[in-house]
């Protein structure tokens, strides 16, 4: 059963897409029905962070073994993570429009953190495309990947805790887990996180197989 995670991912995402719209949610001021975006916006970020963590994991593995497959995996995971950042950003922007009344705000460190993460990965892809030699490219990009990821984690995790944020759970705003996320929502939210992560792994798997074939064809 090597396909179990594809089936599980599809079922979970379909379940959360449908029941996320049907199931009852708490009535809260300002949030109102937009609270349902929690099922789509947050799990997509989780999937992105998961893929980027996979990318740095493979970068470390590449530096310790020198196997080109780890480099391919690292690059592809970064691409999949980057791909997930776009719907994450769009759903977040839409949500911000209806709750904070703006598409984008500089008051929130998480938004800035995401913008920085996107810039970092764009720089990573640019760095990869500017080196022709394969081994050199793999080494350099692995080094930059690790360095940039650590700095990004510092940015995303530490800074928001010291400044005010509009996001729940930071800077005096209550977290979802404490007050808003009731048991009904948990039934959808946790499967959604699992589902999107599994789907992202499926995408990575397909991409990886394609790029490995490409690599063999070009040799």
């Amino acid at each position: 059963m090597k396909h179990w995670y594809k089936i599980a991912g599809t079922v979970l995402v379909l379940y959360t897409l449908i029941f996320g719209l049907l199931n009852p949610v708490p009535r809260l001021d300002i949030l109102n029905e937009t609270i349902r975006n929690l099922y789509y916006h947050v799990p997509i970020w989780f999937a992105m962070l998961f893929q980027m963590s996979l990318s740095i994991w493979f970068a470390i593995k590449y530096l310790s073994t020198g196997d080109y497959k780890h480099d391919l995996a690292s690059h592809n995971a970064a691409q999949v993570g980057f791909f997930f950042s776009i719907p994450g950003l769009l759903t977040g922007s839409l949500w911000a429009r209806f709750t904070w009344n703006t598409w984008w705000t500089f008051q929130d460190p998480k938004l800035n953190g995401v913008a920085i993460a996107i810039l970092i990965y764009l720089a990573y892809f640019l760095l990869r495309s500017s080196v022709i030699d394969e081994i050199k490219r793999a080494r350099i990009s692995a080094v930059y990947n690790i360095f940039a990821y650590v700095m990004m984690i510092v940015f995303i995790m530490i800074l928001p805790r010291l400044t005010d944020s509009l996001h729940p759970g930071n800077g005096g705003n209550p977290a979802f887990g404490k007050y808003d996320l009731d048991n009904n929502m948990r039934l959808i939210f946790y499967p959604a996180v699992m589902g999107w992560i599994l789907i992202s792994c499926w995408i990575l798997n397909v991409k990886l197989r394609i790029s490995e074939l490409n690599h063999l064809a070009n040799d």
């Binding site: 800035n112 920085i116 810039l119 970092i120 720089a123 760095l127 930059y144 360095f147 940039a148 700095m151 990004m152 510092v154 940015f155 530490i158 800074l159």
Partner: peptide, 8 residues
């Protein structure tokens, strides 16, 4: 390469 890393 350096701008986003310098941001924090």
């Amino acid at each position: 390469l350096s701008f986003p890393v310098l941001m924090p």
